[in-house]
Design a protein around this nucleic acid. Structure first.
Lengths: 202, 202
DNA sequence: ACCTGAACACCGTTCAAGT
DNA sequence: ACCTGAACACCGTTCAAGT
């Protein structure tokens, strides 16, 4: 009882540290000192750093509250949900490197279930609903990665010119500039939705 | 001249180390000792570890050679290309956490250019070609992340049950099981292609 | 120009010891 | 049951010194 209370305190402290300095600079010592406690105290509540981070990400999902109400038609609902996940992750981009590594728990599964249920309401078979959910998650994660990459200032024309002896064709360069002006999720999500409409709802 | 030769030797050694122990366990000391040299020797060739990893990823892209010949119709070409990138990354999944952080260079841009050119041949406007390229990259990266997550044994029914007091609905569970039996990229890529066909080629 | 060893300020984790 | 301090085996990076 007080055990799980203390566990929650460590999770909250971890999210504080992450908000301050990012996931990459979170250390067991730093989280512990946030609570005025020895770093080793945490090992009674978490097997290792990975487990602490998994629990912190679960809490992050719970706090994000991305799924909208069920009033909307499926395509708008999907757009709002995907954009919500995208924006939540963009607000704490330092999670990005961990997305493939974190153990997912109950909160992640609850999102899965609500997502698939909403799509099933709109006439998709259960299998298709789950597949659309997975495709959406892939898109969101990939879009956040791409945004991280663009945000870090890569792909800049200076670098591109320096890296490429032969010049990039000017049409492609302006095409890249136009694409980069949008959020990555807005580039891919409409195509996915159109695919769902024609392949699964035809 | 010998400077760039030595630089290449470090990059090759880095890829050896990555093949051995993964990107996450690569250290400057380990790469250096692979060449029987002091760790500090590398700082004459790379500003820091991030630059070394960026150069190693560039080399990884060059060695992967994922783009097929130009004979295929656009949809098959896109499928082969995306699957190629996906498989290359799956063969060295430890890159995954770094995908949003690495500085991209000439080889990455060359892939962009060839990709967009191929789509433009098939009747897409340049802007649309670049957008499809970006959507594809997002999908590939997201699919590799998802595979990493599934591969690590998360989402297992045992964990799911333990994490969720209320049971997941059995339809969703079998839907998840069916979806997990496929490669993540094969779930999302057909939907993207269908979207491109109906939204951009109509 | 290139490489070295020692040092600094950190890590995650183990372990024996305390209450 | 929970927490502690010391220790181990590592990190990336800086710096003065060597050739």
């Amino acid at each position: 009882m007080s055990g799980s209370l203390n566990r929650q305190r460590f999770v909250d402290a971890a999210l504080d540290v992450i908000a301050d300095v990012g996931v990459e600079k979170l250390s067991m010592r730093r989280v512990a000192s946030q609570l005025g406690v020895s770093a080793m105290a945490m090992y009674k509540h978490f097997a290792n750093k990975e487990e602490l981070l998994g629990a912190a990400f679960e809490e992050f999902i719970a706090r994000a509250e991305v799924l909208p109400d069920d009033q909307l038609p499926w395509d708008e609902w999907l757009t709002v949900s995907a954009r919500g996940m995208y924006q939540a992750l963009c607000s704490e981009m330092s999670w990005v490197p961990w997305l493939g590594k974190l153990r997912l728990g109950g909160n992640a599964l609850r999102v899965t279930e609500r997502f698939a249920a909403k799509l099933a309401e709109s006439g998709l078979a259960t299998d298709a609903s789950v597949r659309v959910y997975m495709a959406t998650i892939q898109l969101v994660v990939g879009a956040v990665c791409m945004r991280a990459s663009l945000h870090a200032g890569h792909w800049q024309q200076g670098e591109a010119a320096a890296a490429m002896p032969e010049a990039l064709s000017p049409e492609i360069l302006t095409g890249l500039a136009n694409a980069v002006a949008q959020e990555p999720i807005d580039i891919s999500l409409p195509l996915l939705i159109e695919g769902v409409r024609h392949q699964l709802l035809a």
